[in-house]
């Protein structure tokens, strides 16, 4: 464990909590892509099956359980509790365009052709594109509430910190996980455009981030 990975995991946790609290306190999920949240719950569900097969550390187990619980709670709030505020007209990204290539690629490119490894690889590739429905929804509505942008900021920060973690681990431990690194870099690139908008609009105190 290194400071970059710890900070990345904390940033990821903060993002998830920001979104969950926003939905719970405003009792509304307007502007939130339920599809992205379902994809994230799927990412955690397919990646954390090793909870039952290997013990890495207490931290690892606790964080996995927390991420699973919070992501399912978020999906529950969107599609059950506050479903009447769910903006289905704008949450129209065709997730099958993400799932089919990701499933295909995880069968082609993996470390071992075993169910757990293929599911792990699937979760890595899926996480890289899981935010697309949310970013698509923002471009469609042309704006995002500032809380939603903070959520996206911390998600992007988590990815950037993980890249720093991989640089650190490569130099300190000779560790290099090619699938995670390639997929993680692609995922981080998707946030770059958002980061620019976040800094130039949200941090300038405009409140909402409205796209040009």
């Amino acid at each position: 464990m290194n400071i970059f990975r710890l900070a990345g995991d904390v940033s990821h946790l903060v993002a998830i909590i920001i979104l969950l609290l926003k939905i719970w306190r405003s009792k509304s999920c307007a502007g939130i892509s339920g599809k992205s949240q379902v994809l994230f719950a799927l990412v955690f569900s397919t990646r954390y099956l090793d909870l039952f097969t290997v013990f890495v550390s207490v931290y690892n187990v606790v964080m996995k359980v927390v991420f699973l619980a919070l992501s399912y709670a978020t999906v529950y709030l969107i599609y059950m509790r506050f479903r009447n505020s769910y903006d289905s007209e704008n949450d129209t990204f065709r997730v099958e365009f993400l799932l089919v290539p990701v499933i295909g690629l995880s069968f082609l490119e993996n470390y071992a052709f075993t169910p757990l490894e293929i599911l792990w690889t699937f979760s890595i590739f899926l996480e890289a594109v899981a935010i697309m429905p949310q970013l698509f929804m923002i471009t469609k509505t042309g704006e995002a509430e500032s809380i939603t942008t903070h959520y996206l900021f911390f998600l992007g920060l988590y990815r950037a910190l993980y890249i720093a973690n991989w640089v650190w681990r490569y130099h300190m431990e000779g560790f290099f996980d090619q699938i995670a690194v390639v997929s993680g870099v692609v995922q981080t690139i998707f946030y770059c455009d958002f980061f620019y908008l976040y800094v130039t609009r949200v941090l300038r105190g405009k409140g909402k981030m409205s796209l040009p």
């Binding site: 990975r5 995991d9 990821h12 990646r47 090793d50 290997v54 890495v56 550390s57 690892n60 964080m63 996995k64 991420f67 993996n110 470390y111 071992a112 052709f113 490894e117 792990w120 993980y162 973690n165 996980d177 090619q178 699938i179 995670a180």
Partner: peptide
């Protein structure tokens, strides 16, 4: 297959 079968990252 390449190494990295035990995944210790979240």
């Amino acid at each position: 297959e390449r190494e990295q079968a035990n995944h210790d990252e979240l």
